[in-house]
Every structure is written in C-alpha cells, then in structure tokens.
C-alpha cells in the first residue's frame, strides 16, 4: 500500500489507475490511503462537461484536451457512462472519441460506470478526481453521463461547469426550466452548423440575461467539435470564468461548498454501512416492514427503533 502511495506521488500511471479502482470498489484501504495523500490535492483545475446524450460531450472534451495540451499542461479525464440497473454491466464508450489521446503521455483518461448513482456522475468520481490531482494533472475534465433535466451533481464536483447543448432540442420554455439549465457556467451550442443553432443560442442567452446574480453571465459559445471549430472560444470562456471565480472569491466558496457536499456523502456512506451491520445486514428492516404492513407498527416508530441502533435519535 505504501508502495502505491510512493508510486502515485512519482506520477506512475499504473498506480493512479489501481488507486482509482480501489476507491471505485470501496475497498477498505481507500480511506487510510487518501488520508495521508489528501494534503497533495488542490492543484488541479476541475472542469465539468455535461449535456444530453449525443450532444458531443466526448468529442468536445477530446478537442478541448488537445488544445490545453498545446500549452504543456497535463490533463486528466474522467468519463462516466451509465451502468445497467439489471446486470451491473456497462459499455464505457467515451474513449472512442478520444483515441488520439491514448498515446499522449501528458493525458490520463479513465472511464467509469455510474454504478447505480443517478446524479450524472458516479459515487467515486470525487475521489478519482482527487487521485488524478495528486498524480499531478493540471486540468481535470469530468465528462458526465448524458443527462436529462435534473442530473446536477456535476456542479458539486467541479470548478467550472460547461453545459453542452445542440440545436433543436426544444423551445424557449425548455431554456427557462429549473434544473440542468441552471448549472452551466459556460454554455456551448455544439453542432452549430445545424438548423436553428442561432435561435437556440439566442434563447439560452436570453434566459441567462434574467439571472439574478449578474456578476457572472455565462457566455454562450458555438462549436462544431467534430471539425475542431470554436474550441478556442470555449477555452477562453473557461479561462474567464476561472479568473472571475478567483477574483470574486466565489471559487473558494464553491470549493468549500463542494467539500461540504462530499463530506456529507462520506458520512452518509459510512453511517449506512454501520447501520447495516447493526441491523443484522438489513434483517431488522425486513422484520419491521412486515410489522408495518401488518399494522403492528408504523414507519415512524420503526425509524426511531432503527436509529436507536446508532444511538442518534
């Protein structure tokens, strides 16, 4: 284990890859390992790429990474795809669009299955980001599962959220709905050579004009990622947002907010594990559920009984 630590700090890819598997599989060693290494995090800038399936997230990520690489900065990519709720299996296909990056020594790409997590990223995404940060990546891109309207977890895992949309997905009512449309710090209309691109851009820009907090109005960039068009514009927007976050102090606030969120998740995870152990691996739940159905108990009394096992209530 110490060996893995050393190897990660030396920037060895196999060690980073192994450690990500360890946190992904929730192996018990993970927390001990990351306790020591945690002080080495915080150097990478984390960019979330989200949007509906087929919008071009992987293609855009590929082009953004290539462009960042020209500056000499090293890049990590974490790409998440859905896991089957039936078999636990997954097809992780984001690498298909990034195969040129496979031979670039300054790039580390990792595909992850969402593994039952519904917010657009996987439970272990945050820890995987920390590992790539310690490994030495200057920029880390997180590409989410293709999202619908309410998968907004990415915003709690990154510094700048890029929301990728495409023309023709809906009218201006879609643009003012709550949820995913609220989380973009930078908006990208990809496949901008398609009909309706300018209309989509205007609708989104108009929605953004109505923002209450006017200190940052997200820019709306147009790209044709497959042809490498508009990429520099997106990078400039990301850089501007980064600068804004630094100068306004919001960047620090957001990192605290994100850590608070992941702390809450860690505590919940561990409490769930302890609770399961103390309730005969859920056997107590089964027993109480039967009593509730038989009207011998009620859900609220049962909750008190279960939490009693944790000495919390």
């Amino acid at each position: 284990m110490d060996n893995l630590k050393e190897r990660l700090l030396n920037g060895e890819k196999r060690a980073a890859a192994r450690l990500i598997s360890i946190v992904e599989n929730n192996e018990d060693v993970d927390q001990i390992l990351l306790k020591d290494l945690y002080k080495n995090t915080g150097n990478a800038y984390i960019i979330g790429i989200t949007g509906p399936p087929g919008a071009g997230k992987s293609t855009l990520t590929d082009k953004l990474v290539k462009s960042v690489r020209k500056t000499g900065a090293s890049v990590g990519v974490i790409a998440i795809d859905p896991t089957s709720p039936f078999t636990g299996g997954a097809i992780l296909g984001d690498r298909v669009r990034m195969s040129d990056l496979n031979t670039d020594d300054g790039v580390f790409i990792r595909s992850m299955g969402a593994r039952g997590h519904l917010g657009g990223i996987s439970e272990a995404t945050g820890a995987a980001v920390d590992i790539l940060d310690i490994f030495g990546c200057d920029y880390i891109f997180i590409e989410t599962v293709g999202v619908g309207q309410s998968e907004v977890d990415i915003v709690k895992a990154c510094d700048t959220t890029v929301l990728v949309s495409v023309p023709g997905l809906g009218d201006d009512i879609q643009a003012i709905k709550a949820g995913v449309m609220e989380i973009g710090d930078v908006f990208v209309i990809n496949k901008a050579d398609r009909d309706g691109a300018i209309k989509t851009k205007n609708e989104i820009a108009m929605m953004l004009e109505l923002k209450e907090d006017r200190s940052w109005i997200p820019p709306v960039d147009m790209t044709i990622a497959a042809n490498n068009e508009g990429i520099e514009g997106v990078l400039e927007s990301i850089a501007k947002h980064k600068e804004y976050m630094l100068e306004s102090g919001n960047g620090f606030k957001r990192r605290v907010e994100n850590r608070k969120n992941s702390l809450m998740n860690l505590v919940k995870d561990r409490m769930t594990r302890v609770l399961l152990e103390k309730t005969t691996n859920g056997g107590m739940f089964e027993e109480l559920a039967q009593k509730i159905v038989a009207k011998e108990s009620d859900p609220y009394t049962a909750t008190d009984l279960i939490l009693g096992k944790l000495n919390l209530s």
């Binding site: 896991t83 089957s84 299996g89 997954a90 992780l92 298909v96 669009r97 195969s99």
Partner: peptide, 12 residues
C-alpha cells in the same frame, strides 16, 4: 459481456 455484468471499455 455487459449483460454478464462486466464493465466493458470499447476503444473503437
């Protein structure tokens, strides 16, 4: 392999 519960990374 996916249906057998494995995580499959496809390279293209």
């Amino acid at each position: 392999l996916r249906d057998a519960g494995m995580e499959v990374i496809y390279t293209g």
